Computed example of a mutant assay.
Amino acid sequence: MSATRDYHVDAIDYATDAGAVHQVRDVVFVQEQQVPRELERDALDPLSHHVVARDASGTSIGTARLTPEHRIGRMAVLSAWRGRGVGDALLAALLDEARRRQWPDVSLHAQVAAEAFYARHGFLPEGERFFEAGIEHQTMRRVLAGPGSIAHRAEAVAITTAIIAQARRALVVYSRALDPGLWDAPAVVDALRRFATRQTGAQVQLLLQDAATPQRALAPLIGLGQRLPSVFAFREVQDPVDLPYTAAFVANDDHGYYFRPLGHRFDGEAGLSHAGRARQLREEFSQMWERARPVSEYRALGI
């Protein structure tokens, strides 16, 4: 059991406590989303690992399941409890169970409206969107054992968002020129804004090889840095020893990193539970940061 504010999350025995599951799912899926009850309940329910969130009085307020197919699903939270961390707690409980079973990864079918929520937890989109029970969905997957491979922009945006969300107080970014398609993606900019404003003492250090190009392009992170100068710091590589560096990366002060061997491409590897690799990148960054020049011209740019 994990205590969280005024609710808690437990694993339940579906054979004896199915009512706690369907009490929530009937409201969310059948009543709110108009999913036929015969589609909402299936043969996987008795075979799956279920978790239920309950309030202080013991009333079910959320539920989710982990199927034998290594898939997370039927994530549902009553409307009055949304936005209070219940979904995060349910998802964390299922990820812990998947790790306990030593599964290498888990997948899910995310309703498109919830795609950003799962991205913040390290799930990456796979394939094209599709309709299920009349609702548009996106397949997403999270690697649990070892780093995951990143190949496309959508994956790059999702993992970067997750790394920002996971950060405690510090992020370091090494980028060629605030790479278009990644550091100007609305989801990434929004994640940085939330991080900068929610966390006391938050710090984001951005080290660039080319500071002029994003300045000419009016990159949104420059404007964000102007509004929050105590959080964002920009420097540009100038030491000859650093100029040939071709990679790009982001790393946080927890366990998350995303490394691209070629900084102009999205291809790379990433993980959210690799403290050693994240620490190595931060140390490498720190050395280059000390040799770099502050980008003072960003402070004077009118956006």
Rank of each mutant, 00 (worst) to 15 (best):
R168L: 03
A156P: 02
A191P: 13
R153M: 11
A177T: 08
S149V: 12
P186K: 06
A162I: 11
Q205L: 12
Q203P: 03
Q203K: 07
L208Q: 12
T160N: 04
A154C: 09
L171Q: 03
A165F: 03
V172I: 12
F195L: 09
Q166D: 15
A156F: 10
A196R: 02
W183K: 04
A202Y: 14
R176Q: 10
G146W: 14
T161I: 05
W183N: 10
A196I: 02
T200Q: 14
A151N: 07
G148S: 04
V157K: 00
F195H: 14
L208M: 15
P180L: 15
G146R: 03
A158Y: 10
G201S: 10
T197K: 15
R153H: 13
I159C: 08
G148Q: 07
D179L: 09
A158T: 15
A156Q: 13
V204R: 05
G146S: 05
E155Y: 00
G181T: 14
A165Y: 01
T160H: 00
A177M: 06
A187E: 12
Q203W: 05
I164D: 02
D190T: 12
R176W: 09
A191H: 03
G146V: 08
A187T: 07
A156K: 15
Y174D: 06
A156L: 01
R176S: 14
P147S: 12
Q199H: 13
Y174E: 04
D179I: 08
R176Y: 06
L182I: 00
W183G: 05
L192D: 02
P147T: 08
L207I: 09
A154P: 08
L182H: 06
Q209K: 14
L192P: 00
Q166R: 05
A170K: 10
E155N: 04
T197H: 11
L208R: 12
Q199G: 08
R169E: 08
P147L: 03
Y174F: 14
P186W: 04
I164K: 06
L182E: 14
T200M: 13
G146Y: 06
T161V: 08
L206S: 11
T200E: 14
V173N: 03
A202C: 07
A151W: 01
L207Y: 00
A167K: 02
A177Y: 10
A151P: 10
Y174C: 12
G148E: 11
L171S: 11
R193G: 05
A185P: 04
V189R: 01
T200V: 13
A156V: 01
R176N: 14
L206C: 11
V189T: 10
T160P: 00
A196G: 15
V173W: 07
V189N: 07
A170I: 03
Q209D: 11
V188R: 02
T161Y: 00
R194G: 13
T160K: 00
I163R: 01
A187V: 15
